[in-house]
Design a protein around this nucleic acid. Structure first.
Lengths: 205, 205
DNA sequence: GTCTATAGGCTGATAGAC
DNA sequence: GTCTATCAGCCTATAGAC
């Protein structure tokens, strides 16, 4: 019983060829399920069921489950770095720090699944895959480190330890996705402003 | 082949009765494995193997795997609240905030597995168990909220939104366990001081 | 309290028909 | 490209011997 054979209007077969939509659908579903239940708790059968195909069909799109996780994390990090490089990177260190803060919050608010996976499923990557993701994450954090160091050198910031401050700020900003809901009492812009106020003061700007 | 039969000096049996040590050992091993690999990825067999018993023996100590996770999280939250209530809760809001900051960092640094599980395995709790843990977590966060509100009222802190600030500070402090290592370049007291400097400035004290 | 054995079911991945 | 069927192995939890 395959509903799509009817929708397709192709009476001669019960199976369909849908490479153009099945691929993205698999990624979409896997992302959501991995984020909600965790990589280890989600079976290939469960992903396939939500996509609307049989488990075997998934292997036309990914060599194995691990590659599926890695691809999701890898794309996310690449997209994040690309989006970041388009955002404002000029002005005083204070301007750049504000731009970074607002960028980080708004980018991740639109992609709660991605950030959840990126920080929670690291331990489920093979060592080789882990190394790749860690390097990309390091690149992103270096952007913030660079701003903080520039601010200290320019005398705009008073920071005891820029490296620790980088970690502290990233952790603080990541926390937003654990509680923020669009339906809540605050708009995203308000949240950005509240966090920026705290970040600005924390670095002594 | 059971090594303990020799250690026990009890030649008549190959199995032993070790309720006094097996129980704590199971909790210890489960805590470590859940933290390192995640609840869903750790089998009862794996726990049993590390403890040195067969899988069936675990069920003398826990009705099921879910209860094991819940008990670990529940004990952790109870211990955390008890330890917190013993720590300094007097003085000005600024004093109390410093005490909270240092307490949170040092308490969790000594229990990296517990905090990891407490924040990562919430989604693997049944709804009933989740509600219990969430309430305890709320109690803990209320301590910080209370300090922040008191500081705002006393005019010591300048905060746009104490509720958001509570989340932000907790997230920031939790981040310490993801990177801090005792062998590293900083002592725990130095880390506490760096974070306290940032928290203090962030709240405008 | 621990063991062995097992029930009943799910797992990731593959083979071959269409 | 998707299906069905299947392999070999792992899973949680239980039963009954000791």
């Amino acid at each position: 019983m395959n509903v799509r054979s009817v929708i397709d209007g192709d009476m001669a077969r019960t199976t369909g060829s849908h490479s153009d939509i099945t691929g993205p659908r698999i990624r979409e579903v896997a992302l959501r399920l991995f984020a909600a239940e965790g990589y280890a708790a989600v079976s290939m059968r469960k992903i396939a069921a939500e996509v609307g195909v049989q488990a075997g069909a998934l292997y036309n799109y990914t060599p194995d489950k691990q590659s599926l996780l890695f691809d999701l994390m890898h794309s996310h990090m690449e997209d994040l770095l690309a989006a970041r490089s388009e955002a404002g990177t000029t002005g005083t260190p204070t301007d750049r720090l504000e731009a970074f803060t607002r960028f980080h919050i708004s980018y991740h608010e639109e992609r709660p699944h991605e950030i959840f996976i990126a920080y929670m499923e690291l331990r489920n990557l093979t060592p080789e895959n882990f190394a790749v993701i860690e390097e990309l994450r390091g690149k992103y954090e270096d952007e913030l480190s660079g701003i903080l160091r520039a601010g200290v050198e320019a005398g705009e910031f008073t920071l005891v330890d820029p490296r620790v401050a980088t970690r502290a700020i990233i952790s603080m900003l990541n926390g937003v996705t654990t509680w923020y809901r669009r339906e809540g009492r605050l708009t995203l812009t308000e949240v950005e402003t509240i966090y920026w106020d705290m970040v600005r003061k924390a670095v002594g700007a």
